[in-house]
Design a protein around this nucleic acid. Structure first.
Lengths: 241, 241
DNA sequence: GCACCGGTGTGCACTGAGTGCCATGAAGGG
DNA sequence: CCCTTCATGGCACTCAGTGCACACCGGTGC
């Protein structure tokens, strides 16, 4: 990448600034100055010094300029999922796929934080973000459906796990964004996804040796006790930190 | 215009067709005839015989006319959750709240099926529906957050469970809608939500008597076995059908 | 030199959603 | 009877998004 262009706060057009990046930069400067709805597309193209028609050549709608790299990230995710093998533990695989999204956010912390503050305030952008997140969730669910074919309630299980993974990821992502990018994003998402993996039966770390997988664990539970408590018990007993 | 019922297929209660209902009826007739995007607001108001300005008085946007009763349903849900007591098992409570939504769909099967076919084809409507679903999910998550205060990872757990409940509900709802409303919606959603309840530790049926809760169950599991298999074992052992 | 490209950026006119403002007209209460 | 209130309708306006045609530019063949 050529420096940190495309992120707001950078206005130089020196060497390789493409028109698309210039539009994103101009748009964010105005969005942050006077707000999203108070900024028209004409304002953006005027600041970027390009024609109005060109804006819509690069971005199908005004909202798209706020999420310039999700399309690529979604393609990365589907590619990552397609590149897996049958040996992969399915839940672990989708968790790793979710980590790709977090990494994209973490690549550009200031940009991500600014965008977060924007989407939090503007309902239209929130709706747009939901549709983006929905496509990620569908990608995960489709992968899991494929891996769960034949299992009892395979489709249901796939949809539920995909939703849980996305929710956990977003939970970690949002808390990181609220910290203005100061917290450790990777650690937060690892924790959140670890929670999901424990819940949905992924062995968080596949058994290292062959012999350990034959060990036997005995759990005693009171009938009527909340099942998640029993699961917690199992988690710790099975060695999950 | 006034002879046409409020919702396509059903108009039992109101002798007096209100303007809002007339607009919904006219809109759906046109949407189904020539498609959503091919229908302008002017077309709708012309068919309904009212002024264009009145449309936007009742519906803030063209999309809102497709989901005329979600606002009320959302209010019902928040009311239902607020009416609960501390004795309620939290997961069961949010599952019951989700059932309210299904019930709203099931009240008007033909209308729901038509709308489903519409939203499936029109990206803009899908995005709108996502924002509606998101508000339901937030309502559930907020309730759970309140119930989980003090618990380890309470917020995370609340968000994940809310997402799982919504996903399971939507899974059942969609399969019912795809059956053109012929399947048993209640049974489908019971099955899907039962799955979630089992996974997240709600005792699907609270212990009936006091004595049963002291029974002891022993589970033997191989270390390294998928946790969800162990949970399945637990489910059947604990007596959940 | 010429004609002929495809790709990229632009200008223009148009549709359609959504908004603000004000006129109208029908209750309804004094 | 007037006066207020409220629901409605009409009008003009902004702005997002689209279709179309034109201009510019580097390259290719003749």
């Amino acid at each position: 990448m050529s420096s940190s262009s495309a992120a707001p706060g950078r206005g130089d057009k020196a060497e390789k600034t493409t028109m698309r990046d210039a539009l994103v930069a101009a748009a964010f400067r105005l969005f942050l100055e006077r707000g999203y709805e108070q900024t028209t597309v004409d304002d953006i193209v005027a600041l970027a010094g390009v024609g109005r028609r060109s804006f819509f050549r690069y971005f199908p709608s005004k909202e798209d300029v706020v999420f310039p790299d999700h399309e690529r990230c979604l393609a990365d995710m589907t590619g990552f999922l397609a590149a897996g093998t049958d040996d992969d533990e399915p839940v672990r695989r989708v968790c790793d796929a979710a980590r790709l999204v977090l990494r994209m956010y973490a690549e550009n912390p200031t940009f991500s934080v600014q965008r977060y503050r924007l989407t939090k305030r503007v309902p239209g952008l929130r709706a747009y973000e939901l549709s983006v997140v929905w496509r990620y969730e569908r990608a995960l669910a489709e992968y899991l459906r494929g891996r769960f074919t034949g299992l009892r309630d395979g489709i249901l299980r796939a949809d539920v796990i995909a939703a849980a993974v996305v929710a956990a990821h977003n939970n970690a992502l949002r808390s990181w964004l609220r910290s203005d990018g100061r917290d450790d994003a990777e650690a937060a998402v690892d924790h959140a996804l670890g929670h999901v993996q424990s819940t949905f039966g992924a062995t968080p770390v596949p058994p290292a040796g062959g012999e350990g997988s034959e060990d036997v664990v005995v759990v005693v539970a009171r009938r009527g006790a909340p099942l998640w408590r029993v699961v917690q018990e199992l988690e710790s007993t099975l060695g999950r930190g």
